[in-house]
Write a protein that binds this DNA or RNA. Structure first.
Length: 492
RNA sequence: CGGGAUGUAGCGUAGCCCGGUUAUCGCGCCUGGUUUGGGACCAGGAGGUCGCAAGUUCGAAUCUUGCCAUCCCGACCA
């Protein structure tokens, strides 16, 4: 078991570099830890983004865009939020360069051009958005305000890891305002459900929905809900969060509304986000030694078609047959790539598209053409079958559904096999060291114990699962009484 | 910022200990040809501030010092 858990994020560097994302911008220390998203990787992100966007709109949200720069005075208004992000901010202090008198041809920061107030490059947008909401919300009739933003943010982490923790990343952040606590709480869990649905049904990655402990909570939130996924190396990954912000931001930015009784009240808030980290989750949850395995629903190309030529003879005939299949698949809204590039040989293409994770590959040569059949290979199991050309498009359509299902089932089985109930401290450590995965154990509910466990076992409480089964027990570390198990794991 | 390692062509590397012709090999790239059912082959070709700077020396990729950068581990985190 433990031997199978070998895949670490680093093992995928081949695909990061060759296909999806280049690790850094240039040989330039100042932008280290940023990422260049290549077209193929971006197409993947776009598909994920488009689907999420649809789901946000279906739940009544609208998109807006707020500034990249947050004046320091706004940033510090909500104290806990500011404190939480203070150590990882990029700050703009000047607005002009000038020629350096000592170094011809070089530029220097013009000391005359110092900004009166520093601008924080957003690590998250609560501050600037809530400052704006103050002007948008006066009456209960303005509520709820349901807004999402697709943007980039910057968090100057001491250590970066491609996809999982880059200095700049793309994400969406929803920021909503509500008249009542109940409504805001409902929104928080509703959006968590949207995330869970998206990640499971489209990315085919099973998740545990849960709530964070106080230690792991978003800075400035009353409660943080999360979805936690398990990677093939047995480490957990937080895949998305949805925060109930209470009235913290409303109070910090003085956002009040007049209720039906003509009384002033502070609004209730939520925020929620997922990022390009999801791409990392996708890679680490599904890849094998041959490369990526992409779920059909979000794969940039769902099908790739490779013609196999023999000299020039009957090439037209071959291509005509394939073009008809391409047209049939496109008519079914299947994203298909017809690769008739003659610079690369079929074997090269097979390997290439396997590495890129294209779910279905079809190959047609003269031998097949004469028999009116075509070879169909699926990426997830690597099975190849020969199918009659007649009706192959509907075969492929159902195969894509089958692959989507199979990838999820495989990941689900792996995840379920790697949630282990543990009742002693010795076993707790043994499982983490030898088998990894989630450990379901009793915890006395104190931040002190949580912190000690983190120190000693390097494992954190990933979440307290929603609808958690209540069960009398004793804390695996302190031996104090506990009434439910929580999920521990070593995490990215 | 602490601990460890490493910098040689676009990528991966040999050479360094023990200084001495024109810096090794593979992949990739360019040209021509033959090929195409699982990462083609033949022939020819281009590509190098040996991380940077200083020092030692007749002579430095190789030795010395300083600096810079990268990677891994830790603190931080989506």
């Amino acid at each position: 078991m433990s031997k199978e858990i070998t895949k670490r994020a680093d093992d995928y560097s081949q695909w990061y570099n060759d296909l999806v994302i280049k690790s850094d911008l240039a040989d330039h220390s100042a932008v280290r830890g940023c990422m260049v998203i290549k077209p193929y990787g971006y197409a993947l992100w776009e598909n994920m983004r488009d689907q999420l966007d649809k789901m946000f709109k279906a739940t009544g949200h609208m998109n807006a865009y707020f500034p990249l720069f947050v004046p320091k005075s706004l940033f510090e208004a909500e104290e806990k939020n500011a404190e939480g992000f203070a150590k990882e901010c990029a700050i703009v202090t000047h607005y002009r360069l000038k020629n350096d008198p000592d170094k011809p041809g070089k530029l220097m920061v013009d000391p005359e051009a110092k900004l009166e107030e520093e601008l924080i490059i957003r690590p998250t947008s609560e501050a600037i958005i809530w400052n704006t909401y103050r002007g948008w919300i006066q009456s209960h009739r303005d509520l709820p305000l349901l807004i999402n933003q697709w943007a980039n943010v910057v968090r100057w982490e001491m250590r970066t890891r491609l996809f999982l923790r880059t200095a700049e990343f793309l994400w969406q952040e929803g920021h909503t305002a509500h008249a009542t606590k109940e409504e805001a709480l409902e929104e928080t869990t509703k959006m968590l459900d949207v995330y869970a649905t998206f990640v499971e049904e489209f990315m085919a990655v099973p998740v545990v929905k849960g709530i964070k402990t106080a230690n792991e909570r978003f800075a400035g939130a009353e409660d943080t809900y999360c979805i936690e996924a398990l990677m093939q190396d047995g480490k957990a990954l937080q895949a998305g969060t949805s925060h109930f912000l209470g009235q913290n931001f409303a109070k910090a930015f003085d956002v009040q509304f007049t209720n039906k009784e003509n009384k002033l009240e502070y609004v209730w808030a939520t925020s929620w986000g997922v990022s390009t980290r999801l791409i990392g989750a996708l890679i680490m949850a599904h890849s094998d030694d041959q490369g990526l395995i992409l779920p059909p629903k979000i794969a940039p190309h769902q099908v790739v078609i490779v013609p196999i030529y023999k000299g020039e003879e009957r090439k037209v005939e071959l291509n005509d047959a394939l073009k008809k299949i391409v047209a049939d698949l496109q008519a079914m809204n299947i994203r298909v790539k017809f690769d008739d590039n003659e610079n690369n040989r079929p074997g090269w293409k097979f390997a290439q598209y396997e590495m890129q994770g294209v779910p279905v590959r079809m190959a047609l040569g003269l031998r097949d053409l004469d028999n009116a059949v075509i070879e169909v290979a699926r990426r997830d199991t690597k099975e190849k079958t020969t199918v009659a050309i007649e009706g192959v498009s509907s075969y492929v359509q159902s195969l894509l559904d089958e692959i989507q299902k199979n990838i999820f089932e495989k990941a689900l089985q792996f995840r379920n096999e790697n949630i282990r109930k543990v009742d002693t401290w010795e076993e707790f450590n043994k499982v983490l060291d030898n088998e990894a995965g989630f450990v379901s154990a009793h915890w006395d509910g104190t931040p002190e114990t949580e912190e000690k466990i983190k120190q000693e076992a390097k494992a954190t409480i990933r979440c307290i699962p929603l609808n958690n089964e209540q069960e009398e027990g004793v804390c695996v570390f302190s031996g104090k009484p506990s009434k439910e198990r929580v999920l521990f794991a070593r995490a990215y």
